[in-house]
Nucleic acid binder design. Structure first.
Length: 259
DNA sequence: ATGTCTCCAAAATGGAGA
């Protein structure tokens, strides 16, 4: 079973790219982030035509997350994290598909630092942390997937020194991700490729993709029950070079079918 | 500081967000 994540950066503006990638890559399940579309402007019909059921959480202008599935229509279990969201942003969508619990997340970017956006990111992280703890103790097959807006280590960005003061790479942000992972989660791509350079995002600025000046910020966190099922994982890097591409690449993993 | 791209606004450029 192939499970993917893709920050599309505008689901309607990117629809041709999304559909082309779906057709070529044929994932079974897809988590999308940054829909940038209100609830009633999600291209459900076109995506259904491509063979995918979808559930989504829209928002005017910003944010927005969705889960697509070829297998069966995802059953929504949560549309936000427990606790107060003072900004009411569409950033969390948790679904059940077969025996999997999938949390599709779009963690706040946090820039500029310091400031209210960074504070919001850290509060969001705390809420994610608390809920993830509940999920992992459930003993179920859980995957937290999406755009974390966190560069986990120096290995995960082309020039770490340039990002020392960035909201994606500050020590406290990396520590927050480490803390979360230390609950018992596995970073799937890093697990598969312990030492390789892996980038999932390339800025539109200054030909970042052409220069391979990227970073790894889109992640799959697997609960212990999922780790033994993990077979493969990859970044569909060439998609970033397509006309009208998002600044993120699609990323996917393959897990063994549940018996 | 800048670079680029999207969406949105009492609508054409310009701000916000990333």
């Amino acid at each position: 079973m192939k499970i993917a994540t893709y920050n599309v950066n505008g689901v309607n503006g990117r629809l041709p790219v999304l559909l082309k990638w779906l057709k070529e890559s044929q994932p079974d399940i897809v988590c999308l982030q940054e829909l940038k579309a209100p609830q009633d402007k999600f291209p459900e019909a076109e995506i259904l035509e491509a063979g995918y059921h979808s559930v989504w959480l829209g928002q005017k202008s910003w944010n927005g997350v969705a889960v697509l599935s070829k297998l069966e229509k995802p059953v929504v279990s949560r549309t936000d994290l427990p606790g107060e969201d003072e900004i009411e942003a569409s950033r969390y969508l948790e679904v059940k598909i077969k025996d999997l619990i999938i949390a599709c997340i779009y963690l706040p970017n946090g820039n500029p630092v310091p400031g209210p956006k960074f504070d919001y990111k850290m509060r969001w992280f705390e809420r994610l942390d608390a809920h993830a703890e509940m999920l992992i103790t459930s003993g179920k097959k859980v995957l937290i997937i999406g755009d974390f807006n966190v560069i986990p280590t120096e290995k995960d960005v082309y020039k770490p020194e340039k990002y020392k003061n960035d909201g994606l790479f500050l020590p406290e942000v990396r520590k927050a991700l480490e803390n979360l992972i230390s609950q018992g989660w596995t970073d799937a791509l890093r697990h598969l490729y312990p030492t390789e350079t892996i980038y999932t995002f390339f800025d539109y600025f200054r030909k970042a993709y052409e220069r391979n000046a990227g970073m790894r910020i889109d992640h799959f966190l697997l609960s212990p029950e999922v780790v033994p099922l993990l077979k493969k994982g990859e970044v569909d890097k060439e998609v970033r070079g397509w006309e009208k591409s998002s600044d993120h690449c699609p990323v996917w993993i393959e897990i063994e079918e549940s018996k």
